[in-house]
Design a protein around this nucleic acid. Structure first.
Length: 227
DNA sequence: CCCTGATTCGC
DNA sequence: GCGAATCAGG
């Protein structure tokens, strides 16, 4: 599998939405979790709440890690020494949740929250499912108007692509990412929601108890891909 | 054990 | 550039 524009776009969207690398990899298909992470980093995306780095100690004694490695798998001695690179590239935004001490949920308002981990889930086609409340933050700068350029495939020339999403059009996925005709609904949204009225009906179905749940619920175009 | 992301390094 | 192997925290 190669990293096409579409796949990269999906990767970016999902990564920035807080989807895990596994989810992204699974959605894209044909790539491993590691591949996604590797690509994400190469793209310059970085540092979602990483479990390992979250509890960063002040002491950055990194070299210790390399030592125990010694003989990985191949007996090939690795004289390579990559020692001093301490002040690499600190994140522009200092991590908010340094310790559990913070919290202070004193702001239920959906106002502009600085860096709280956005709770976003990914729907059937890799779209962003967001709470109606926090629709506002995610698309502040209305990007340059693009009337369907950069879309080599004529079959989706008039469709709503991943890049054409705005807070005014329905984000319901039609098809699956990576497929040639993948696009979004694009209808006018139900105000306050990411979807049009019709798709809101699908997106916000009440969750029934497990026992009483209807197995074959309506899903867009066959629902999630089966693998 | 499972999960997560980060990093390294051979390809 | 890619991603498996590896590391490391939860």
């Amino acid at each position: 599998m190669s990293w096409t524009d579409e796949r990269i776009a999906t990767l970016k969207k999902m990564w920035e939405s807080g989807s895990t690398a596994s989810q992204i990899a699974d959605e894209l298909g044909g790539v491993s979790r590691n591949a996604v992470i590797g690509k994400a980093h190469r793209l310059g995306l970085k540092s979602r709440p990483s479990p390992v780095k979250a509890g960063e100690k002040k002491k950055a004694a990194k070299p210790a890690a390399a030592a125990p490695k010694a003989a990985p798998k191949k007996a090939a001695p690795r004289p390579v020494a990559k020692p001093a690179k301490p002040a690499a590239a600190p994140v522009a935004k200092p991590a908010a949740p340094a310790t559990k001490a913070d919290a202070v949920p004193s702001q239920p308002l959906p106002n502009k929250t600085p860096d709280l981990p956005k709770i976003v889930s990914v729907g059937p086609g890799g779209f962003l499912r967001q709470g109606p409340g926090d629709q506002q933050p995610p698309i502040p700068p209305a990007p340059p108007r693009r009337l369907v350029p950069a879309k080599p495939d004529p079959s989706i020339a008039d469709k709503t692509s991943l890049l054409d999403l705005s807070d005014k059009v329905c984000r319901w996925p039609m098809g699956h990412p990576g497929e040639p005709d993948f696009h979004f609904c694009g209808d006018a949204v139900n105000p306050g929601f990411p979807y049009c009225v019709q798709h809101c009906g699908r997106a916000y179905q009440a969750q029934l108890p497990r026992g009483a749940r209807r197995p074959p619920p309506p899903l867009p175009f066959g629902g999630p891909r089966v693998r």
